Simulated assay, not measured.
Amino acid sequence: MKVLGFWNNKGGTGKTSLAFQGICAFATQNADKRILVLDVCPQANLSELLLGGQENSGGLNLLTLHGEAGRRSIGGYFQSRLPKPFDTTGLAPNGFISVPHSYNPAVPPNLRLLAGDPLLELQANAVSTLANTQIPGTDSWAKVVSWLRDFLAACDEHYDYCFIDTNPSFSMYTQIALAACERLVLPVTADDSSRRGIQNAMSLIYGLKLPSEVYAQHNFHSRMLAAGIPLPKVHIVAKNRLTQYINTAKSYTAVLSGIAHDLDAMVKDNPEYFTFDSVASGIEEIKDFQTAGVVAFARGTPFVSMQSGSLSVAGQRVKVDKPQLDQNRDIVHALAARFW
Protein backbone atom coordinates (compact mmCIF):
# COMPACT_ATOMS: atom_id res chain seq x y z
CA MET A 1 0.00 0.00 0.00
CA LYS A 2 1.30 3.46 -0.91
CA VAL A 3 0.70 6.17 1.68
CA LEU A 4 0.51 9.92 1.13
CA GLY A 5 -0.33 12.51 3.78
CA PHE A 6 -1.53 16.12 3.78
CA TRP A 7 0.05 18.25 6.49
CA ASN A 8 1.17 21.71 7.41
CA ASN A 9 1.89 22.90 10.93
CA LYS A 10 0.02 26.08 10.02
CA GLY A 11 -3.77 26.11 9.80
CA GLY A 12 -5.82 27.94 7.18
CA THR A 13 -3.91 26.72 4.12
CA GLY A 14 -6.92 24.93 2.62
CA LYS A 15 -5.41 21.54 3.39
CA THR A 16 -8.64 19.63 4.00
CA SER A 17 -10.45 21.08 0.97
CA LEU A 18 -7.44 20.23 -1.18
CA ALA A 19 -7.30 16.72 0.28
CA PHE A 20 -11.03 16.17 -0.34
CA GLN A 21 -10.87 17.28 -3.96
CA GLY A 22 -7.51 15.63 -4.68
CA ILE A 23 -8.42 12.27 -3.16
CA CYS A 24 -11.78 12.11 -4.95
CA ALA A 25 -10.10 13.03 -8.25
CA PHE A 26 -7.45 10.36 -7.70
CA ALA A 27 -10.13 7.76 -6.87
CA THR A 28 -11.97 8.66 -10.07
CA GLN A 29 -8.78 8.41 -12.12
CA ASN A 30 -8.05 5.03 -10.53
CA ALA A 31 -11.52 3.51 -10.33
CA ASP A 32 -10.12 -0.02 -10.30
CA LYS A 33 -7.95 0.67 -7.22
CA ARG A 34 -8.90 0.29 -3.56
CA ILE A 35 -8.32 3.50 -1.64
CA LEU A 36 -8.30 4.05 2.11
CA VAL A 37 -8.61 7.49 3.73
CA LEU A 38 -7.48 8.10 7.32
CA ASP A 39 -8.78 11.28 8.96
CA VAL A 40 -6.38 11.84 11.86
CA CYS A 41 -7.93 15.10 12.98
CA PRO A 42 -10.25 15.78 15.92
CA GLN A 43 -12.17 18.33 13.83
CA ALA A 44 -12.99 15.55 11.34
CA ASN A 45 -13.75 18.02 8.54
CA LEU A 46 -12.61 15.65 5.80
CA SER A 47 -14.85 12.92 7.20
CA GLU A 48 -17.86 15.24 7.23
CA LEU A 49 -17.19 16.17 3.61
CA LEU A 50 -16.90 12.54 2.50
CA LEU A 51 -20.02 11.65 4.45
CA GLY A 52 -22.20 14.38 2.90
CA GLY A 53 -21.14 17.83 4.03
CA GLN A 54 -23.35 20.31 5.82
CA GLU A 55 -26.19 20.10 3.30
CA ASN A 56 -26.36 16.31 3.18
CA SER A 57 -26.13 15.25 6.83
CA GLY A 58 -22.35 14.75 6.91
CA GLY A 59 -22.16 15.73 10.57
CA LEU A 60 -25.05 13.46 11.53
CA ASN A 61 -23.58 10.57 9.56
CA LEU A 62 -20.27 11.07 11.37
CA LEU A 63 -22.05 10.98 14.73
CA THR A 64 -23.70 7.74 13.65
CA LEU A 65 -20.26 6.19 13.09
CA HIS A 66 -19.10 7.44 16.49
CA GLY A 67 -22.16 5.85 18.09
CA GLU A 68 -21.67 2.41 16.62
CA ALA A 69 -20.34 -0.43 18.75
CA GLY A 70 -16.58 -0.07 19.09
CA ARG A 71 -16.82 3.47 17.65
CA ARG A 72 -16.15 3.30 13.91
CA SER A 73 -13.45 6.00 13.79
CA ILE A 74 -9.82 6.84 14.55
CA GLY A 75 -10.91 7.47 18.14
CA GLY A 76 -12.36 3.99 18.34
CA TYR A 77 -9.15 2.47 17.03
CA PHE A 78 -6.99 4.43 19.46
CA GLN A 79 -9.35 3.48 22.29
CA SER A 80 -8.74 -0.18 21.44
CA ARG A 81 -4.97 0.35 21.64
CA LEU A 82 -4.85 2.21 24.96
CA PRO A 83 -5.22 -0.89 27.22
CA LYS A 84 -2.44 -2.75 25.36
CA PRO A 85 -0.41 -0.05 23.59
CA PHE A 86 2.59 -2.21 22.72
CA ASP A 87 0.72 -5.35 21.59
CA THR A 88 -0.28 -5.77 17.94
CA THR A 89 -1.91 -9.19 18.22
CA GLY A 90 -5.55 -9.41 17.25
CA LEU A 91 -5.79 -6.09 15.39
CA ALA A 92 -9.02 -5.91 13.38
CA PRO A 93 -8.95 -2.71 11.27
CA ASN A 94 -12.06 -3.48 9.22
CA GLY A 95 -14.28 -2.95 12.23
CA PHE A 96 -13.31 0.72 12.29
CA ILE A 97 -13.58 1.41 8.54
CA SER A 98 -16.69 2.77 6.82
CA VAL A 99 -17.87 3.20 3.21
CA PRO A 100 -18.52 6.91 2.50
CA HIS A 101 -20.35 6.22 -0.77
CA SER A 102 -23.12 4.46 1.16
CA TYR A 103 -23.81 7.77 2.95
CA ASN A 104 -22.84 10.16 0.15
CA PRO A 105 -23.28 8.90 -3.45
CA ALA A 106 -21.36 11.95 -4.74
CA VAL A 107 -18.00 10.48 -3.68
CA PRO A 108 -16.31 7.63 -5.57
CA PRO A 109 -17.40 4.11 -4.53
CA ASN A 110 -13.82 2.81 -4.24
CA LEU A 111 -13.07 4.96 -1.16
CA ARG A 112 -13.02 3.62 2.39
CA LEU A 113 -12.71 5.79 5.50
CA LEU A 114 -11.30 5.68 9.00
CA ALA A 115 -13.27 8.68 10.21
CA GLY A 116 -11.92 11.54 12.29
CA ASP A 117 -13.01 11.95 15.88
CA PRO A 118 -12.96 14.72 18.55
CA LEU A 119 -12.11 11.94 21.01
CA LEU A 120 -8.51 12.31 19.80
CA GLU A 121 -8.10 15.45 21.89
CA LEU A 122 -9.26 13.63 25.02
CA GLN A 123 -6.94 10.73 24.23
CA ALA A 124 -3.93 12.93 23.49
CA ASN A 125 -2.55 13.14 27.04
CA ALA A 126 -2.91 9.40 27.62
CA VAL A 127 -1.23 8.62 24.29
CA SER A 128 1.66 10.99 25.02
CA THR A 129 2.11 9.50 28.50
CA LEU A 130 2.27 5.98 27.05
CA ALA A 131 4.78 7.10 24.42
CA ASN A 132 7.10 8.46 27.11
CA THR A 133 6.78 5.55 29.54
CA GLN A 134 10.16 4.13 30.48
CA ILE A 135 10.16 0.35 30.04
CA PRO A 136 13.48 -1.54 29.98
CA GLY A 137 14.09 -3.09 26.59
CA THR A 138 11.11 -1.36 24.95
CA ASP A 139 11.11 1.78 22.85
CA SER A 140 7.71 2.98 24.02
CA TRP A 141 7.69 6.01 21.74
CA ALA A 142 8.40 3.89 18.66
CA LYS A 143 5.66 1.43 19.62
CA VAL A 144 3.05 4.17 20.03
CA VAL A 145 4.10 6.23 16.99
CA SER A 146 3.63 3.04 14.95
CA TRP A 147 -0.05 2.62 15.81
CA LEU A 148 -1.22 3.65 12.33
CA ARG A 149 1.63 1.74 10.71
CA ASP A 150 0.26 -1.30 12.56
CA PHE A 151 -3.25 -0.49 11.33
CA LEU A 152 -2.12 -0.25 7.71
CA ALA A 153 0.00 -3.40 7.96
CA ALA A 154 -3.02 -5.31 9.24
CA CYS A 155 -5.15 -4.32 6.23
CA ASP A 156 -2.42 -3.91 3.62
CA GLU A 157 -3.69 -6.66 1.33
CA HIS A 158 -7.09 -4.97 1.03
CA TYR A 159 -5.94 -1.56 -0.27
CA ASP A 160 -3.68 -0.15 -2.97
CA TYR A 161 -3.40 3.46 -1.77
CA CYS A 162 -3.89 5.31 1.48
CA PHE A 163 -4.33 9.05 2.05
CA ILE A 164 -3.97 10.63 5.49
CA ASP A 165 -5.36 14.01 6.47
CA THR A 166 -3.70 15.45 9.57
CA ASN A 167 -4.29 18.11 12.16
CA PRO A 168 -2.36 21.42 11.86
CA SER A 169 -0.35 20.62 14.97
CA PHE A 170 2.50 18.40 16.05
CA SER A 171 0.70 16.57 18.82
CA MET A 172 1.38 12.89 19.41
CA TYR A 173 -1.50 11.78 17.21
CA THR A 174 -0.14 13.94 14.37
CA GLN A 175 3.26 12.31 14.80
CA ILE A 176 1.54 8.91 14.62
CA ALA A 177 -0.02 9.99 11.32
CA LEU A 178 3.23 11.34 9.88
CA ALA A 179 5.12 8.20 10.88
CA ALA A 180 2.76 6.20 8.65
CA CYS A 181 3.31 8.40 5.57
CA GLU A 182 5.75 7.79 2.74
CA ARG A 183 5.04 11.07 0.95
CA LEU A 184 3.69 14.46 2.01
CA VAL A 185 1.72 17.21 0.35
CA LEU A 186 2.40 20.56 2.05
CA PRO A 187 -0.19 23.21 1.12
CA VAL A 188 0.91 26.83 1.53
CA THR A 189 -0.75 30.17 0.92
CA ALA A 190 0.81 33.48 -0.05
CA ASP A 191 1.53 34.90 3.39
CA ASP A 192 4.53 35.16 5.67
CA SER A 193 3.06 32.71 8.17
CA SER A 194 3.00 30.04 5.45
CA ARG A 195 6.65 30.74 4.75
CA ARG A 196 7.39 30.26 8.44
CA GLY A 197 5.16 27.18 8.38
CA ILE A 198 7.39 25.52 5.79
CA GLN A 199 10.46 26.32 7.89
CA ASN A 200 8.73 24.94 11.00
CA ALA A 201 7.76 21.78 9.13
CA MET A 202 11.38 21.16 8.20
CA SER A 203 12.42 21.65 11.83
CA LEU A 204 9.68 19.46 13.29
CA ILE A 205 9.95 16.52 10.88
CA TYR A 206 13.60 16.61 9.86
CA GLY A 207 15.29 18.43 12.73
CA LEU A 208 16.63 21.21 10.48
CA LYS A 209 17.81 24.50 12.00
CA LEU A 210 16.87 23.68 15.57
CA PRO A 211 17.69 26.43 18.08
CA SER A 212 19.62 24.11 20.39
CA GLU A 213 21.20 20.65 20.52
CA VAL A 214 18.88 19.92 23.44
CA TYR A 215 15.99 19.65 20.99
CA ALA A 216 17.99 17.42 18.65
CA GLN A 217 18.17 14.60 21.20
CA HIS A 218 14.45 14.05 21.58
CA ASN A 219 12.81 15.36 18.44
CA PHE A 220 10.69 13.42 15.94
CA HIS A 221 13.56 13.09 13.45
CA SER A 222 16.01 11.62 15.95
CA ARG A 223 13.48 9.23 17.44
CA MET A 224 12.36 7.99 14.03
CA LEU A 225 15.96 7.32 13.02
CA ALA A 226 16.69 5.57 16.31
CA ALA A 227 13.64 3.35 15.83
CA GLY A 228 14.53 2.57 12.22
CA ILE A 229 11.26 4.02 10.93
CA PRO A 230 11.62 5.78 7.55
CA LEU A 231 10.77 9.47 7.48
CA PRO A 232 8.15 10.72 5.01
CA LYS A 233 9.42 12.75 2.07
CA VAL A 234 8.01 16.04 0.86
CA HIS A 235 6.42 15.22 -2.49
CA ILE A 236 4.37 18.27 -3.46
CA VAL A 237 4.28 21.83 -2.16
CA ALA A 238 0.85 23.08 -3.21
CA LYS A 239 0.70 26.86 -3.61
CA ASN A 240 -2.96 27.11 -2.79
CA ARG A 241 -5.61 29.79 -3.54
CA LEU A 242 -3.29 31.74 -5.83
CA THR A 243 -5.85 33.99 -7.51
CA GLN A 244 -7.08 35.02 -4.09
CA TYR A 245 -3.74 36.73 -3.56
CA ILE A 246 -1.70 37.40 -6.67
CA ASN A 247 -4.29 39.50 -8.48
CA THR A 248 -4.65 41.83 -5.48
CA ALA A 249 -1.12 42.75 -4.41
CA LYS A 250 2.38 42.36 -5.76
CA SER A 251 3.68 41.73 -2.25
CA TYR A 252 2.08 38.29 -2.26
CA THR A 253 4.11 37.35 -5.32
CA ALA A 254 7.22 38.27 -3.35
CA VAL A 255 6.13 35.98 -0.50
CA LEU A 256 5.62 33.05 -2.88
CA SER A 257 9.04 33.72 -4.39
CA GLY A 258 10.46 33.68 -0.87
CA ILE A 259 8.87 30.29 -0.20
CA ALA A 260 10.39 28.95 -3.42
CA HIS A 261 13.78 30.39 -2.46
CA ASP A 262 13.67 28.76 0.99
CA LEU A 263 12.66 25.42 -0.53
CA ASP A 264 15.43 25.61 -3.09
CA ALA A 265 18.03 25.89 -0.34
CA MET A 266 16.47 23.00 1.60
CA VAL A 267 16.38 20.72 -1.45
CA LYS A 268 20.02 21.46 -2.25
CA ASP A 269 21.20 20.95 1.35
CA ASN A 270 19.00 17.95 2.22
CA PRO A 271 17.84 16.19 -0.97
CA GLU A 272 17.09 13.01 0.98
CA TYR A 273 13.95 14.63 2.45
CA PHE A 274 12.33 15.33 -0.92
CA THR A 275 11.07 13.23 -3.82
CA PHE A 276 12.02 15.99 -6.28
CA ASP A 277 15.41 17.48 -7.11
CA SER A 278 14.26 20.94 -8.16
CA VAL A 279 11.69 23.27 -6.65
CA ALA A 280 10.00 23.78 -10.03
CA SER A 281 9.18 20.07 -10.24
CA GLY A 282 7.94 19.93 -6.65
CA ILE A 283 5.49 22.84 -6.71
CA GLU A 284 1.88 22.60 -7.87
CA GLU A 285 0.00 25.87 -8.29
CA ILE A 286 -3.67 25.79 -7.24
CA LYS A 287 -6.00 28.63 -8.14
CA ASP A 288 -8.73 29.58 -5.70
CA PHE A 289 -11.82 27.37 -6.20
CA GLN A 290 -14.15 30.36 -5.69
CA THR A 291 -17.93 29.75 -5.58
CA ALA A 292 -17.67 26.14 -6.77
CA GLY A 293 -15.34 25.42 -3.83
CA VAL A 294 -17.80 26.85 -1.30
CA VAL A 295 -20.62 24.78 -2.78
CA ALA A 296 -18.46 21.64 -2.80
CA PHE A 297 -17.57 22.13 0.86
CA ALA A 298 -21.18 22.74 1.89
CA ARG A 299 -22.66 19.84 -0.08
CA GLY A 300 -19.87 17.27 0.30
CA THR A 301 -19.73 17.08 -3.49
CA PRO A 302 -16.31 16.88 -5.17
CA PHE A 303 -15.75 18.60 -8.50
CA VAL A 304 -15.50 15.22 -10.24
CA SER A 305 -19.24 14.62 -9.66
CA MET A 306 -20.57 18.18 -9.27
CA GLN A 307 -22.99 19.58 -11.83
CA SER A 308 -22.99 23.23 -12.88
CA GLY A 309 -26.08 25.38 -12.50
CA SER A 310 -28.15 26.60 -9.55
CA LEU A 311 -27.53 24.55 -6.40
CA SER A 312 -28.91 24.79 -2.87
CA VAL A 313 -26.62 25.94 -0.06
CA ALA A 314 -28.00 26.88 3.37
CA GLY A 315 -31.46 27.46 1.93
CA GLN A 316 -30.17 29.72 -0.84
CA ARG A 317 -29.73 29.04 -4.53
CA VAL A 318 -26.10 29.46 -5.60
CA LYS A 319 -25.02 29.45 -9.23
CA VAL A 320 -21.99 27.39 -10.20
CA ASP A 321 -20.66 28.43 -13.61
CA LYS A 322 -19.63 25.62 -15.94
CA PRO A 323 -16.33 27.26 -17.04
CA GLN A 324 -15.28 27.72 -13.41
CA LEU A 325 -16.25 24.17 -12.53
CA ASP A 326 -14.41 22.76 -15.55
CA GLN A 327 -11.31 24.76 -14.60
CA ASN A 328 -11.46 23.44 -11.04
CA ARG A 329 -11.80 19.87 -12.31
CA ASP A 330 -8.71 20.33 -14.45
CA ILE A 331 -6.79 21.72 -11.45
CA VAL A 332 -7.60 18.83 -9.11
CA HIS A 333 -7.06 16.21 -11.80
CA ALA A 334 -3.59 17.66 -12.46
CA LEU A 335 -2.84 17.59 -8.74
CA ALA A 336 -4.11 14.02 -8.29
CA ALA A 337 -2.11 12.81 -11.29
CA ARG A 338 1.05 13.80 -9.40
CA PHE A 339 0.31 11.89 -6.20
CA TRP A 340 1.99 8.71 -7.53
Rank of each mutant, 00 (worst) to 15 (best):
V3P: 06
F6W: 07
G11D: 07
G12N: 07
T13D: 06
F20N: 10
Q21H: 14
Q21Y: 13
C24D: 09
Q29S: 03
N30E: 01
I35M: 06
V37L: 10
D39S: 11
A44P: 03
N45K: 02
N45E: 07
N45P: 02
N45G: 08
E48G: 13
L49V: 02
G53V: 07
N56F: 15
S57C: 14
G58T: 09
G59Q: 09
G59E: 04
N61A: 14
T64G: 05
L65A: 03
E68D: 05
R71S: 10
S73K: 05
S73V: 06
Y77C: 13
S80T: 15
L82F: 12
P83N: 15
D87M: 04
G95H: 12
S98R: 01
H101S: 09
H101E: 08
H101Y: 10
S102R: 12
A106W: 05
P108N: 06
P109I: 07
L113T: 11
L114I: 12
D117A: 13
A124P: 00
V127A: 07
V127N: 00
S128R: 04
S128V: 00
N132A: 06
T133Y: 00
Q134K: 09
G137R: 08
D139F: 04
K143L: 14
V144M: 06
F151W: 06
A154V: 03
C155P: 03
E157V: 01
H158I: 00
H158V: 00
N167W: 03
S171H: 10
M172N: 12
I176N: 12
I176L: 14
L178I: 13
A179N: 13
E182W: 10
P187Q: 04
A190V: 02
D191G: 08
S193E: 09
S194P: 10
R195G: 09
I198F: 11
N200K: 14
N200S: 10
M202S: 00
L204A: 15
I205A: 03
P211S: 04
S212Q: 09
S212P: 01
Y215Q: 13
Q217V: 08
F220V: 04
S222K: 14
A226C: 09
A226T: 13
G228P: 10
P232L: 03
P232M: 05
V234C: 07
I236A: 05
V237N: 01
A238E: 08
K239S: 11
L242M: 14
K250E: 08
S251L: 07
Y252E: 00
A254D: 04
A254S: 01
V255E: 00
V255R: 00
S257A: 13
G258L: 03
H261T: 08
D262V: 08
D264N: 14
V267Q: 12
P271V: 02
V279S: 04
I283L: 08
I283Q: 03
E284N: 03
E285W: 05
I286V: 11
V294D: 11
V295Y: 02
A298P: 04
A298C: 09
R299D: 09
R299T: 15
P302L: 06
S305N: 13
G309N: 06
S310A: 13
V313Y: 07
G315W: 04
R317V: 04
K319V: 10
V320R: 11
K322D: 15
N328K: 14
R329P: 09
D330S: 14
W340D: 15
